[in-house]
Amino acid sequence: MSSEQEAESIRCLVSKVGLDGHDRGAHVIARAFRDAGFEVIYSGLHKAPDEIVQAAVQEDVDVLGISILSGAHNTLVPKIMDGLEEYDAKDDTLVLVGGVIPDEDRPELEEEGVAAIFGPGTSIEETIDFVRENAPQR
């Protein structure tokens, strides 16, 4: 399979969880993923954790990108991870978090199963390369 075919087979859900209305970063990453050849679904704003889980499971995504700037990451991200586990989708889904996440909060999110946390200033190429290297093979 060529790298272009591999990229096309990577299904991504880019999501905005909670009351955070700042979606420019989510739009930028969704567009970059699309330009890289990934299949992208954007959840829209103000989604509850269970809505994001339902979308990830129903769309059978390989990658779930959670964009959060509200500061509620320690509450909302674990709810998403628990939901994925309930549907036996946690091990089959590469979960990424993007946003302003304090260094002291990162280990807890990683223990929950978040594969990577991308903060401000992370290059688009770094994020795309991480997805290509770590997305589950189906």
Rank of each mutant, 00 (worst) to 15 (best):
M1W: 06
S2W: 03
S3E: 14
E6Q: 08
E6K: 08
E6D: 05
A7L: 02
A7Y: 01
I10S: 03
R11S: 13
S15K: 07
V17S: 12
L19Q: 12
D20F: 01
G21V: 13
G21S: 15
R24S: 14
R24F: 15
A26G: 11
H27G: 11
H27P: 00
H27L: 14
V28C: 00
A32W: 08
F33P: 01
R34V: 04
D35M: 11
A36K: 02
A36H: 05
V40T: 10
V40Y: 03
Y42T: 04
S43D: 00
G44L: 08
G44S: 11
L45Q: 10
K47V: 02
P49E: 08
E51L: 03
Q54D: 13
A55R: 15
A56W: 08
A56D: 07
V57F: 02
D60P: 11
V61C: 07
V63E: 02
G65V: 09
G65T: 07
G65S: 05
S67L: 02
I68E: 04
I68N: 10
L69P: 02
S70C: 03
G71K: 04
G71C: 01
A72Q: 05
T75M: 13
L76G: 04
L76D: 03
V77Y: 01
M81H: 13
D82S: 12
G83Y: 04
G83L: 04
E85S: 15
Y87F: 14
D88V: 15
K90G: 04
K90N: 12
D91M: 11
D92N: 15
D92G: 10
T93P: 03
L94D: 02
V95K: 05
L96P: 12
V97M: 11
G98Q: 05
G98I: 07
G99F: 04
P102Y: 01
D103R: 12
E104R: 11
R106C: 13
E108P: 02
L109I: 12
L109D: 07
E110R: 07
E110F: 09
E111Q: 11
G113F: 07
G113L: 04
A116S: 13
F118S: 03
G119P: 08
P120M: 06
G121E: 06
G121C: 04
T122I: 06
T122S: 15
S123D: 12
T127H: 01
D129H: 13
F130S: 11
V131P: 08
V131M: 06
R132V: 12
E133V: 06
N134H: 14
N134W: 01
A135Y: 00
A135I: 02
R138L: 10
